[in-house]
Design a protein around this nucleic acid. Structure first.
Lengths: 217, 217
DNA sequence: TAGATTGTTAATCGATTAACAATC
DNA sequence: TAGATTGTTAATCGATTAACAATC
């Protein structure tokens, strides 16, 4: 059993990985923790602490980390090579935005289909030309998951009123990880305690800004 | 100068407030920390600890907190009565989703306008009937902010490539708080250190689920 | 009364920051 | 060499959990 890595660390590892992707440096060059601080906003001390904690001891004094090796290590931790296929429940604006999310590709995450109940959406395809995804009716979901037993994750973007029952339904059909975007705290039923759920409502970070600007005087 | 409240606490306070809104209990009833745990997922110990920290000592043993009083206290902390008017830069799917975000109203947050550069969007109105908002051209932003000097916050939903320059422009025009939704870590220029910025890319929480499901064996 | 729930303190836990010897 | 940067430890800081006396 591996060491447990907190989600905070995972988040920062994601930052490092994406920064590396975007910098697009030659594989045989080096990047220092100081440079990583510059591009990710994570302090260089924190960067080295993370690497130490994760057993990434590939640095060279005076140079930094070989890009090629660092990529390999980060990929390993994030299981990038494993890949993941996911579905999106709710083909509204947020669902469609997620279905086009650029960085998923770099993470080896594939959105295979969207599901909705609106007649005007069901049967259409969404997304940019060349990477379009079908919108199916929610009633087809059960069969779809049976045909695609490698799909264990769903992104939930249905209206608040339908969110909890949809989550319950997803779990019944074998989904094991869900990100809920509805503005409602959902709960995993007790009998399915191993299902991973993140409530991540778009818009809540605005509250923090409002607080910082208007309450903190 | 008030005690500094961390953003984690603010986030939980938001949960309590929204739970209270949704439960819609009569003002003269009581709610216990145990019940708040049930509806928010925050442990009752944490709830009481938060209230203690914030000086909310209005509980009655054996009963809990009077809904009316609790509302008042939470509103005070979150500055709900102050209110905030904000603009959205980028009228794509995420921008439009945010412009319709239900809970903003309960928080006394008003989206006044959206800005974009796409000809097919500029000049239109978005949103549900009765609460439509105009989409203006980004070039009109400077004048708009001059006319509405009470607007200090922008939600940034432009494409990644344009995000940093747009942020710089916003700051130049006097914006003091920004939530960035583009999949890129933006930086506030050194000369504007007091500007509040949150990078909150939709989709990153999926990475956590993927990690929990596929890496943690 | 007995049971339930608060307010508060202390203990625990975890995360971040700082510092620095080692060395390329 | 001198300067820069790592790996690692220790110190600090902050957040959460647990416990319980007080009391309605």
């Amino acid at each position: 059993m591996k060491k447990k890595i907190s989600l905070r660390v995972i988040r920062r590892i994601s930052f490092y990985y994406e920064a590396l992707l975007k910098l697009n440096l030659p594989e045989n060059t080096y990047i220092s923790s100081k440079k990583l601080e510059e591009v990710t906003g994570v302090s260089c001390n924190q960067v080295r602490q993370d690497f130490f904690y994760l057993g990434i001891s590939i640095g060279k004094q005076k140079k930094g980390y070989l890009v090629k090796k660092l990529f390999r290590e980060l990929k390993k931790i994030l299981s990038i090579d494993h890949g993941a296929r996911v579905v999106i429940i709710g083909a509204g604006r947020i669902g469609q935005a997620l279905s086009n999310y650029k960085l998923f590709k770099a993470r080896n995450i594939t959105v295979t289909a969207l599901f909705d109940i609106k007649p005007e959406l069901v049967g259409t395809e969404v997304g940019k030309p060349g990477q379009q995804k079908p919108v199916l009716h929610v009633s087809q979901l059960e069969a779809y998951l049976k045909e695609n037993p490698d799909i264990h994750i769903a992104l939930l973007t249905v209206p608040e009123e339908a969110a909890q029952e949809t989550l319950d339904m997803l779990i019944t059909h074998g989904v094991r990880g869900v990100v809920n975007f509805a503005p409602k705290i959902l709960k995993v039923p007790k009998e399915a305690r191993d299902v991973q759920l993140i409530n991540d409502c778009i818009g809540t970070s605005l509250y923090k800004i409002v607080y910082q600007l208007y309450s903190r005087k």
